[in-house]
Amino acid sequence: PEDEKKAKEALKRANGDEDKAKEILRKLGVDPDRAEELLRRLR
């Protein structure tokens, strides 16, 4: 869904750096736990 698209985009923008991607997602208003879960799934 929408969050998943955001997560993929964030990872791309962060050049695969998960911590940076998490930060980006947090700024986009995605719940930190949700962000973590999404990134884990994309790994």
Results as ranks from 00 to 15, higher is better:
residue 13 R to H: 10
residue 12 K to C: 08
residue 25 L to A: 01
residue 4 E to C: 08
residue 33 D to W: 12
residue 42 L to F: 08
residue 39 L to S: 00
residue 18 E to V: 15
residue 18 E to R: 11
residue 8 K to N: 05
residue 41 R to Y: 08
residue 17 D to Y: 04
residue 26 R to T: 14
residue 4 E to M: 15
residue 18 E to K: 11
residue 1 P to F: 14
residue 38 L to S: 02
residue 25 L to K: 00
residue 33 D to K: 13
residue 9 E to P: 01
residue 21 A to Y: 05
residue 5 K to I: 13
residue 20 K to N: 05
residue 27 K to V: 11
residue 27 K to A: 14
residue 16 G to N: 06
residue 35 A to P: 00
residue 9 E to S: 08
residue 7 A to E: 02
residue 39 L to C: 03
residue 11 L to Q: 02
residue 10 A to D: 00
residue 32 P to D: 11
residue 36 E to N: 08
residue 19 D to Q: 14
residue 41 R to F: 08
residue 20 K to T: 09
residue 14 A to P: 00
residue 5 K to L: 14
residue 39 L to W: 02
residue 19 D to S: 13
residue 8 K to V: 13
residue 7 A to P: 01
residue 41 R to T: 06
residue 25 L to N: 00
residue 15 N to M: 11
residue 32 P to R: 10
residue 27 K to M: 14
residue 43 R to I: 11
residue 3 D to P: 04
residue 2 E to S: 13
residue 7 A to D: 01
residue 26 R to P: 00
residue 26 R to V: 15
residue 42 L to T: 03
residue 34 R to Q: 09
residue 9 E to R: 09
residue 4 E to W: 15
residue 41 R to Q: 11
residue 25 L to H: 00
residue 20 K to F: 10
residue 23 E to P: 00
residue 20 K to P: 01
residue 23 E to K: 07
residue 22 K to W: 09
residue 1 P to L: 15
residue 32 P to Y: 09
residue 38 L to F: 04
residue 2 E to G: 11
residue 20 K to M: 13
residue 26 R to H: 11
residue 43 R to A: 07
residue 21 A to N: 00
residue 5 K to G: 08
residue 28 L to S: 07
residue 25 L to G: 00
residue 29 G to F: 02
residue 29 G to S: 03
residue 35 A to D: 00
residue 28 L to F: 07
residue 5 K to C: 06
residue 21 A to G: 02
residue 36 E to P: 00
residue 22 K to Q: 05
residue 5 K to M: 14
residue 32 P to A: 12
residue 11 L to G: 00
residue 38 L to Q: 02
residue 37 E to R: 06
residue 17 D to W: 04
residue 4 E to H: 10
residue 26 R to K: 13
residue 23 E to G: 06
residue 31 D to V: 04
residue 23 E to M: 08
residue 19 D to P: 06
residue 30 V to L: 11
residue 27 K to G: 13
residue 1 P to Y: 14
residue 26 R to M: 15
residue 22 K to L: 14
residue 4 E to I: 15
residue 28 L to Y: 07
residue 24 I to G: 02
residue 8 K to D: 04
residue 23 E to T: 06
residue 1 P to V: 13
residue 11 L to W: 11
residue 31 D to I: 04
residue 31 D to W: 04
residue 23 E to R: 09
residue 15 N to A: 09
residue 39 L to M: 08
residue 8 K to H: 10
residue 40 R to I: 07
residue 40 R to N: 09
residue 28 L to Q: 12
residue 33 D to Y: 10
residue 13 R to K: 12
residue 30 V to Y: 15
residue 16 G to W: 10
residue 18 E to P: 12
residue 14 A to V: 06
residue 6 K to I: 15
residue 27 K to C: 10
residue 16 G to D: 04
residue 4 E to P: 03
residue 27 K to W: 09
residue 11 L to M: 10
residue 12 K to H: 11
residue 29 G to Y: 01
residue 10 A to N: 01
residue 9 E to N: 08
residue 33 D to A: 14
residue 15 N to Q: 10
residue 26 R to F: 11
residue 11 L to A: 02
residue 24 I to E: 07
residue 39 L to T: 01
residue 11 L to E: 01
residue 20 K to E: 10
residue 38 L to W: 05
residue 25 L to R: 00
residue 43 R to F: 07
residue 16 G to A: 03
residue 3 D to K: 03
residue 39 L to R: 00
residue 27 K to E: 14
residue 32 P to V: 08
residue 13 R to M: 15
residue 39 L to A: 00
residue 11 L to I: 06
residue 38 L to P: 00
residue 24 I to L: 10
residue 2 E to D: 14
residue 20 K to W: 09
residue 11 L to P: 00
residue 12 K to S: 10
residue 25 L to P: 00
residue 24 I to Y: 12
residue 26 R to Y: 12
residue 8 K to P: 02
residue 29 G to A: 03
residue 29 G to V: 01
residue 25 L to W: 01
residue 7 A to V: 12
residue 36 E to Q: 07
residue 13 R to N: 09
residue 30 V to N: 01
residue 35 A to G: 04
residue 19 D to I: 13
residue 41 R to E: 06
residue 33 D to G: 11
residue 10 A to Q: 01
residue 15 N to V: 04
residue 7 A to T: 05
residue 28 L to A: 10
residue 23 E to D: 10
residue 15 N to H: 12
residue 4 E to R: 10
residue 19 D to C: 10
residue 25 L to S: 00
residue 9 E to Y: 13
residue 2 E to F: 10
residue 32 P to E: 12
residue 41 R to W: 11
residue 16 G to F: 08
residue 4 E to D: 07
residue 38 L to V: 05
residue 9 E to K: 07
residue 36 E to Y: 06
residue 41 R to G: 07
residue 13 R to C: 09
residue 16 G to S: 03
residue 7 A to S: 03
residue 13 R to S: 12
residue 40 R to E: 08
residue 10 A to Y: 02
